[in-house]
Design a protein around this nucleic acid. Sequence first.
DNA 1: TTGCGTGCAAAGGTTTTGCATGGCA
DNA 2: TGCCATGCAAAACCTTTGCACGCAA
Lengths: 140, 140
Amino acid sequence: MATRSQYNTKQREQIMDFILTKKDGHFSVSDVMDYCAENDIHIGQTTVYRHLEKMVDEGILNKYFVDLLTPACFEYTGGKHTHSGQCFHLKCEKCGKLFHVHCDMLEHIDAHLEEDHGFVLDTRRTVFYGTCEECRRNAR
Amino acid sequence: MATRSQYNTKQREQIMDFILTKKDGHFSVSDVMDYCAENDIHIGQTTVYRHLEKMVDEGILNKYFVDLLTPACFEYTGGKHTHSGQCFHLKCEKCGKLFHVHCDMLEHIDAHLEEDHGFVLDTRRTVFYGTCEECRRNAR
DNA sequence: TTGCGTGCAAAGGTTTTGCATGGCA
DNA sequence: TGCCATGCAAAACCTTTGCACGCAA
């Protein structure tokens, strides 16, 4: 894997510009396309797919899925591969919102799965499904 | 939601027959279609999709996704909505295998997310991504 | 000049929708 | 008879692939 970019192209730079403006959040391929449309930047969507995939290989981005038939999500990692700053991805099945929760519990789950089940968790790709507080209140 | 079947049709019965033979495992829409082909049963795939979706609404089946561009997985719940008998879905990103692990840890995660984050986990739909023991040994 | 990068169009695969027909109650 | 269920075909959707052209080094 780890197919690294060898050339510095304008397209890669422009995609990177977008990512840096979205540093704290998530985005999908279509978000990149929208950004390009708004700023009169023309990049083929195939190119976007290919660059994002490469960046995942390089560890710059983290990729995860929240649902079938829903575009893949990408998240900027700040260029670090570190496991610190882990976060839960919580997806509410009612309202569809995606929450990011930073919490020590995750490390415990991590340790438990590894010790008792021999399974090393990739927390970045794992999404927890359920119902958020707001939706539970509304349902009551 | 909860669109319940109102009629007892031959198709629903035949799909149910298949599910009962698969009680312990998982299956996808295409597994149902294969079963039908093998047994000279003709059911349109649209009908299969619609019945499985209904059964999810009724709580008979549990639906989850392991990957984008991979068919949705269904799991027979035994007709109970109970939260006992919970299991982890562990998906190995290396070999692609899907593991089922029954473990108390899950209840702790459950309780923690609810108490500290107000989030009620739907364990049945959540899939943990990572690397299994075998693949880690092979990588070393 | 070499070979990766780009972008259009088409393909691939799963799931959903439209619509006319069939079948349960 | 009324209304849901069925099934074919087509649409919708995201993503990948093929291929010719462009461009960085």
